[in-house]
Amino acid sequence: MSRKHPVIAVTGSSGAGTTTVKRAFENIFRRESIKAAVIEGDSLHSLDRMAFRAAAAEHSKNGNNHFSHFGPEANHFEKIEEMFKTYGDTGMCKRRYYVHSDFEAEEHNKHFNLTDLKAGVFTPWEDIESGTDLLFYEGLHGLAQNEEKGVDAGRHVDLGIGVVPIVNLEWIQKIHRDKAERGYSAEATVDTILRRMPDYIKYITPQFSRTHINFQRVSTVDTSNPFIARDIPTPDESFVVIRFRDPKGVDFPYMLNMIPDSFMSRANTLVVPGGKMSYAMEIILAPIMHEMIENKKK
């Protein structure tokens, strides 16, 4: 970890809602005039769209129906760790982007002065901009480990944030997002969930024991069968359970005073109404960012 060049990692499964946390950080960065180098987790996959499909088909042919984007075979865990370490040591590193859509392809082609980038591929690697205050990662594997290869990205992370809805709610969000944004049927998304499950258990969930703060949304409506849910529970139909790994020094009285209808459920756990999730994130994270930048200056 590095006081001079801090690394922040926001990590969560597909459909967990890490974008909400990213927006909260963006608001803080803007208000505090913090210049962040942003790293997208998708860019650290090891296979582009076509290569992944081919690899998944080959694994299935050989009897392995659990090849997924969640595991080390489809990701550069070692590059995530190398990126975090290099930035912490020098304030610089290389990054690339995964091209999600034709619109992004057009933008990246302009940026890299290319013509052949298309949806589903990676851009070339490039140096991040100089003079950044911190590195901000958002994706699946911000605190990933692979004990077989001695990889532990989390040891270079100064602030790790987990975004972890209860699993049925996470699945509802994923099913609806995949249908709305990608045109996938519910059946196709369920197949993806089943294929990913072993890697989800081995490589995704253990990260949330290593994070500094977890935000877990818990619905207050029936989600017993997530595969038939007609809509996603609204923020007002949920609570957010916020767990601090180390409660020492956390100003809980201030947070309880600032966040209406919040309460403590344990000595290290704050519970807030779902509709106050973004507000609570900024109340909690802004002082941490301020302290991080002050330590950097020192």
Results as ranks from 00 to 15, higher is better:
G249L: 08
V151G: 04
V271I: 11
F70S: 12
N113A: 11
K118F: 09
D152T: 02
E147W: 10
R182A: 06
Y279K: 06
R96Q: 08
E294F: 08
T223L: 12
M255W: 14
K110Q: 12
D42H: 12
S219G: 05
I34G: 05
V21K: 11
L169E: 03
F84I: 00
L270T: 02
R182M: 06
T269L: 00
I284E: 11
I166K: 12
A286T: 15
H212W: 00
M255F: 15
V221D: 10
L134S: 09
P235W: 07
T20W: 01
V271M: 05
S33W: 12
K4A: 15
V164S: 10
A186G: 15
S262L: 00
K35R: 15
S238I: 01
I204P: 09
K149F: 05
D102V: 03
E291N: 15
Y98T: 00
D152W: 04
S14Y: 07
K94V: 09
T90I: 13
P247I: 07
I34P: 03
P206E: 13
N295R: 14
E32R: 15
H45M: 13
V10D: 06
V163G: 00
R95W: 02
T115A: 14
T86K: 12
H59N: 11
T189E: 01
V221C: 10
A188C: 00
L140M: 04
I204M: 13
N146I: 00
Y279S: 04
E40S: 10
R230C: 08
F67T: 07
K179V: 02
P226N: 02
P206T: 11
E107N: 10
L270M: 03
L159K: 05
V10L: 12
D261I: 09
S68C: 08
I228G: 05
F239R: 07
S185M: 10
Y137G: 11
L285Q: 09
S13T: 12
V10A: 07
G274A: 06
D231M: 04
